[in-house]
Amino acid sequence: MSFDVAFILSTLPAFLKAVGVTLQVGLIAIATSLVVAVINTAILVYRTPYLQRAVGLYVELARNTPLLIQLFFVYFALPSLGLKISGFAAAIITMTFLGGAYLTEVLRAGVEAVPAAQLESGRSIGLSEGQLLRHVILPQAGILSLPALFANFIFLLKETTVVSAVAVPEILYTTKSYIALYYKTYEMLAVLTLICVLLFLPLSLLLSRLERRLQHGQFGS
């Protein structure tokens, strides 16, 4: 079996671009998912009537259907309803749909993990419910959620490979294209694997360092 190094080198510029697309889809999706999750968590924490049930339903639906099927629904089914969207837009919408649900669960768990005694303690010095949320609940819930939050960030970044199915030129799509065109299966899979390791592993390490630093800053040791 020959391993065509020269060919690999010739594909690197394209893969560099693909890494950019992967990061772009992933980071935008993480940001929009966070926004969705914060809104949902507020709805759940304040037990907003009706909306609370809607959020519950959404979370279950999003977490119990495969991402690929969600993606097909957004990309192929919505246009038949008259909504034409690009593959990139479909990718962001679908990733947000999924990520929003997962991050909602993470933040909700964080808020619930703040001891009830901390709330009593805050109320006993006269804090209003809003002040309690801002100065006691959110900072503590944020810190408590960090490990799960960061794990889900990585999870969402990895899931971006699924959007290759709607021709978003990210790393997996680029790999598959080269394989289809040149039959360099081993070379391209090797490159893909290497990119994943080089991309996600350092990010993972970076986030766990950040997590420790933030916890140290918040709790003093």
């Binding site: 005694a117 901390q118 303690s121 805050g122 006993s124 006269g126 503590q140 709790f219």
Partner: peptide, 23 residues
């Protein structure tokens, strides 16, 4: 207005309940 009352009535708990994320 319990927020007013609580400013006049201080409470100390068995397990202190200081805010752990603050100095």
């Amino acid at each position: 207005d319990w927020r007013q009352v609580r400013q006049q009535v201080g409470m100390v708990f068995q397990s202190y309940h200081l805010f752990g994320h603050m100095s």
